[in-house]
Design a protein around this nucleic acid. Sequence first.
RNA 1: UGGCUUAUGGUGUAACUGGCAACACGUCUGGUUUUGGUCCAGAAGAGUCUAGGUUCGAGCCCUAGUAAGCCAACCA
Length: 678
Amino acid sequence: MSEEKKSLNFIEQIIEEDLANGMSKNDLRFRFPPEPNGYLHIGHTKAIGISFGLGEKYNAPVNLRFDDTNPAKEEQEYVDAIKRDIAWLGYKWDKELYSSDYFQQLYDWAIQFIKEGKAYVDSQSSEAMAEQKGTPTQAGVDSPFRNRSVEENLDLFNRMKNGEFDEGAHILRAKIDMKHPNMLMRDPIMYRILKKHHHRTGDTWCIYPMYDWTHGESDYVESISHSLCSLEFKPHRELYDWFLDQVVVEGTIRPKQREFARLNLSYTIMSKRKLLQLVEDHIVTGWDDPRMPTISGLRRRGYTPSAIKKFVETVGVAKRDNVIDVSLLEFCIREDLNKIAPRVMAVLDPVKLVITNYPEGKEEWLEAENNQEDDNAGFRKIPFSKELYIERDDFKEEANSKYFRLSLGKEVRLKNAYIIKGESVLKDARGNISEIHCTYDADSLSGTGTDASLRKVKGTLHWVSIKHAIKAEVREYDRLFMDEAPDSYQDKNFMEFINPNSLKIIDAFLEPSLLEAKVGDRFQFQRLGYFSIDEDSTSKHLVFNKIVGLRDTWAKQEAVQETNKPSEKVSQSQQNQPQRNAIDVIQQLGKKYTNLPEAKQLKAKADIQELAENVSYEELSPLFATASKKVGTRIAAMITLGVLLNKGLSKNAEINDFIQKALQDSDSLLISEAEAVS
RNA sequence: UGGCUUAUGGUGUAACUGGCAACACGUCUGGUUUUGGUCCAGAAGAGUCUAGGUUCGAGCCCUAGUAAGCCAACCA
């Protein structure tokens, strides 16, 4: 129980402060307010995690409120999908609510606004109004309708509500300030005429409230204490507060809007509009395509709720723009699946392996551990026979000592089975390997405890018995975009970065135990990665999605070797070796110099003096400009200068300046070094 | 000639509210291993955007710059 160490994010700090200032814990209440105009994606998961997470932390209710003020875009399908996704993540909302529940209350308040002279009906075209609104750097001007009488406004608004006007003929605006530096405060629109069927209120209304007018008041009606949203709503806060000022009654909970930076993921896009385009252009098969960053896509891909929650937790909450590396998401899912996914064997790119000294027709059912990370996972039987498939990548006719897999004359272990030795290969007319022949050591069977079974060999391969193997379709996914930030360019469309090879369909061979697997089951295909059964599967035709590969340091090594071979890209690998310029090392020593105890300081000084022998004046002189507060670096530079002067360097104006400034410093170490050279 | 916000290793987030920068991912070593996975041990990488200032002491406070993001939909 050592939770006190965990630091609070800035939102938690605000809440703690409110609590300290007398707010009752019972008054804490949050909400998640999606617009039902698209599917939830991984970015929303952050917002969900923040508000629902706070609810869990403080044991406070969290409402799910659909922000459904625009019937032109919103649909029941999205409501259902959103509820499904949040429930799947494992969060429980207190009440399921809709902004449309408050249409009447909002309308009543609007009437009150008109009566108090705080709102008016404008009857211009949207173009005219946009022009009057000005620009961020230029004040707006008042509408000619701004000073209509209360009676006229009331009459017009009433007739708007009754459907007497066409869309666009009139709107209701709050009367605030057309010269306000915040554009949102320049008489924002509260209502527009929309003769559309609403998924909940049907045809009851033909005027619909705008977001700004609706959101804060809905929070208020629900007694939301903290209304958390992403950063782009920061400018809206002023208006949110202005609207609240007009209606909040003393002694009630006044909601507080606070903003955090939204989540961005490298190599993906987060805009609902753009995601919709991928669906409509059939780049993907739907919102739940396993390549999509939607929650439903991740679910179908095989991600677990706990991995996603862990991810969101790890990412943190702050106010600066960020791009999270996908490797973190992958880490979270691997970490989770490593503990829970049963291991099985599957061969995705088969080559036939024949064990020449294994009896014809013999078969054995060998014992295999389901998950060595889980003591309760148990064991299963897998069939072994003379003819197997192994991975094409797992064999090379000749290989160096770095290659741990099968090659001619070398031994490897077949996982859960025997040790084999490569003997010969058969090739087809084009020279491709069609069969590998090997011999096995009959005494080496896994788990028998014989000396032979205990022998250590370099590599272990996964395999599957040809006769017993079941065929399955495996869908392997790659990132949808080839650019790290596909929608960050003004001059390029994100569609230009679509990865044409984001889906690869593979005919794979699996061990027969998989015949019993059900849709949604997740497995580790040993040495390959994590896979889950897709809902397209039938009893005759299994379909797997690759969730994520295993961490693969071998593939990485190979890639490095490749790039290093043609040209001498040695510099890259040297970068990590302590092969640095003397001056850089000196600078480094300097950084820590003032923090060192005296004995180490002396050693550092000696090191610097030694290194200084290999430093030219041209390398040193830039350090003269070091900021005055970086005392350590200046000391190191001074010591180095001493060495150069000793070697016959003559002083110039630059050097004298540097020394003079050091002599006037407050740091005694620096002064004494400066005195030593002056 | 606007307003608001942000700035800490490659990435993300910390730093007990002023006491010489920590955690996670990633990278690299080494060990264990019947998964080149996991696990274990370790390393490299940041004087905290710049320049001043206050202070015994600044990533935290002040001033001035710089850079990035957001704001002109009858969208949310």
